[in-house]
Design a binder for these strands. Sequence first.
DNA 1: AGTTTACCTG
DNA 2: CAGGTAAACT
Length: 668
Amino acid sequence: MNLSHPDQSMHSSSEGCLEDDKPDVMLPCFRRNMYDEPLASYSNGSIISQLLRKTIHNKRALEESHFYLSSSTAADSGQEDQSSVSSKDSTVEAASPSAHVSTGGSPEGEYSMTDHLQAKRARVENIIRVMAGSPNSRQHGDSERSDTDARDTREAREAYRENKRKQRLPQHQEHSVGGPASRRPGSSNSDNCNTKDEECHKLKEQLHSMQRLLRQLQEKFLQVYNQEDPEHDRDETKVDHDTSIASHYNSTDDDFERKNSRVTAECKDRMKVVGYLVHQRESQNLQETLKQELSRAVNDCVDRVFKKVSATGLELSPQQRMCSSPEIQINMGVDRKSQQAGSTQEQPQAEEASVKPRSLEYYESSEAKSPQDQTEALSLVVRKPAVTPLSSVTPTVKRPYPVHQAPFQFSYSTPLHDTQILEHLLKYGPHSNFGGLPCMPPSMDRTSPDSVDLPWDAIAMRSKVTSSHLGHHGRPSALGAVTVDNLCLPHVKIECGELQSMAERNPYMSLNIQEGLTPSHLKKAKLMFFYTRYPSSNVLKTFFPDVKFNRCITSQLIKWFSNFREFYYIQMEKFARQSIVDGISDVKDITVSRDSELFRALNMHYNKANDFHVPDRFLEVAEITLHEFYNAISAAKDSDASWKKAIYKVICKLDSDVPDEFKTSSYL
DNA sequence: AGTTTACCTG
DNA sequence: CAGGTAAACT
């Protein structure tokens, strides 16, 4: 219990610090020695070693201090040599010191004397063996050991250590040489002992203060983590307190638990030592403060969201506000509940039950009213029932919208929402045909040109308002059909959280918020192909404002146009070759008109319903493309593997701007 | 390294 | 139309 431990820890300080983490806190006074260990390797390492031994022994034998100091240093050097030598020996070494201690005898001085003498003897022998390697470092050791050889009584153990030293010498030569040698001067001198004692005392003071600081830090740490324990029961006893914390974290949100369980476990042990009464009082105050701040933040977020909504022109009806309020109250209720020191187990579950299951309930109910007609025929293009805004929404909500910063999920009661959707349906009818759109005269343009640079949500909201506004004007004809088509929105992979939730709460908004690409989008893309064959991703984002773009969606849209091009070029090549086969000798004889078979094929592919007036420019481009193919094939360039690339290069420059009508989501 | 494209396939 | 791949490009 005495010397063996400090010496051992001195050589395995790093391990000891890590392994003895808890004892460090629980036994600060003892742990203080551990803090000394790193210092031992420095210039005043001898002071530290003295301090260590003194603090251990001065309780029992103060009068022996003088003798002890002189001998302990010798023992220190000797034992350090031993342990350092044997540090590489794993199991045998671990057992030997303890056995040594037990046999060392109960009297303090006796044990230390015999032990040190043995160590010194071993050291002398060791020095003799390694004299050539480190001559100067052994000088003091020799003089010290000369007066202790007589007390050596255990030859067997000596031989054991000696062997170990012999084996390990080359590796630890530097340690055994540098450490003890640097430590020895002064420690063997009794005059220096007093001054060293003062140094020791100062160091001790420093250590004490540092330990106090550490304790304070630990307390603060505990307080911080206790703040996150909403239902902290402060009347529990120490042990119950710990268990209650553990149980609470087990019962809380999983994510939260994962984040804090480790720290909680660490804190649990420390809490047993730290004064609870004081820090609990402080932590209570912090807890209250944190909760108040959180509540305020939530309130601010709610206010901002609704302010934003109203500012965008989306006026929530009182009913809608009522719809949203319960959710807010639920959240606030949870917050309030967290302030109470109540039942710990039921709180998180209650929160879950108040939000998520309700949402599911709503989705299920709405789904029942509007049966799901989703088909997987199109793997990524999914149909969405007209009245189901979020029937199969994946809960993986990732991307937050910048405008809506509410940190919680909105949900709302179902009846009002459904009635409003029905209202909307009654206004516009269930027709979902896409036809007639582009044929509308320019005066009927529903979009303002400034919509290009508007943020996504602004466009979405504006377009929604526009569509509803037009609907009120009672001319649902073409536009109405288009708008209703919006009602058949996709319910694919909804990633955004807040705005999506907002949209769910507002049927008008939900018209314009989609995560996936719908058949309507495909239709629109095909029509856009009449204008642009190589749309940039920016163009796509501009003209699909109701689509929440992510990597996947963008790739899908790009792939669409790639497929469009593929078909387009295949047709071009086909008809070009056909022209050659038909014996057409002059390129000028090849024209593309609306009566052309080529155009019919293309129109059948991109405008199947034939309800879109294909721009003349597309006919020109098609003609140019056909000519390019004809010329290339005629020139036998098709023998080249990449003969089409030149044509692509030409065609890609023929893109024209897509009309603004395509920019609005209501155009779908 | 990631994106885009053409090409091929089903 | 989507998946896969390879090449080209950035």
